[in-house]
Design a protein around this nucleic acid. Structure first.
Lengths: 197, 197
DNA sequence: CCTACCGATCGGTAGG
DNA sequence: CCTACCGATCGGTAGG
């Protein structure tokens, strides 16, 4: 109610959405505000009625994605499922986001390096914290003998980056379905963790 | 003997090496020829005595890496090891290259998108072909019951991107040793494939 | 939301 | 390998 959520909000939303698509294709640095404006359907100068700078657009994309994953992690940690089920939920969420929210997630994952301080450090810290929470979950699973003995930080590294591989699936011409991809990937990644004795 | 390999060759080598480091940090688009020149220790204009364009530098880096991996794949395919040993060799090579030849491999892996045609298509084709060869090896292992039944293209996707996760290790402050990382990662990735019945 | 425009910087060339 | 410089384009602002 405080801010009118009418046209102004949706135009900013459109800018962020178009920006995500363009940043993914060309990269942040190679995308010009003029190209973005054209895609949005206004003049470059008019962009600045909705956003303050090019940097701010990148910040909005990166931190929206970071918040999304942090909040999901909160939910999972607060749930009462067993450890391997929690991890499965997290992996599934990553896969689904990489499929359904591809542009934003990709940009957040690959272009966050172009963030300026202090946002860069903030983002890196959030990222590190998220991975530590994930690794802790795996450690707990190992302690409870639900998960095979392995180096948890390395496993997190592998799992998260493996999911990033969905990018190649998006670029692939002869795609299997998203549903199939999700199941194939989940099966393999869960098998990385599951004890088989 | 044909080309004198003295100062001219090593200066070009220096340019490529410095460029790889800068492209990794700032990205191809955000790296200026002036910044690169300063790093090399000459004026921007002097760069053009050794290379023809900024694009050409990126091409040199990307295709050198592509050739390296293709040639390794040739060797492995020609060898007489069993399938799982061949795959282990390939994975180990990827891990080692990602550790020892990090700047170049990273740039080739992340910045190839900035390549212009016809190099872009050429690179993409090489990449696709390499992955198909890798997937074929996995398929063969499945047929020979050396490898568990899984979707080979998805497994390749996971393995290759998982290894890309070594990037996070490079950025990490509290590093385990390269040797440990290699073993942790290899163990986990081979366990993805190995039958355990 | 536009026209008009700013200073800075870009990749690259001419000519020596 | 340098000085001097090119046209193009950049992110962003002024003023309406």
């Amino acid at each position: 109610m405080a801010k009118t959520p009418g046209k102004k909000a949706s135009k900013k939303g459109l800018i962020l959405q178009k920006a995500a698509t363009m940043f993914r294709h060309r990269g942040f640095s190679a995308t010009s505000m003029r190209d973005l404006a054209e895609e949005v359907g206004i003049e470059a100068a008019s962009l600045y009625n909705h956003i303050n700078s090019k940097q701010e657009i990148l910040e909005a994309i990166c931190f929206e994605v970071a918040n999304l994953f942090n909040e999901h992690m909160d939910q999972v940690e607060a749930s009462s499922a067993n450890t391997i089920a929690k991890i499965e939920r997290i992996i599934r969420f990553h896969i689904q986001q990489m499929i359904d929210n591809y542009e934003q997630v990709f940009v957040s994952d690959r272009e966050w390096r172009r963030l300026e301080e202090p946002y860069l450090s903030n983002f890196q810290t959030q990222r590190r914290t998220y991975r530590k929470r994930f690794a802790s979950l795996i450690e707990k699973g190992i302690d409870k003998k639900e998960i095979r003995s392995l180096d948890a930080p390395t496993a997190v590294l592998i799992i998260l980056h493996a999911i990033g591989g969905i990018e190649s699936w998006h670029r692939s011409s002869q795609k299997i379905s998203a549903r199939e991809l999700e199941e194939n990937m989940l099966t393999i990644l869960i098998d990385v963790l599951r004890k088989n004795d």
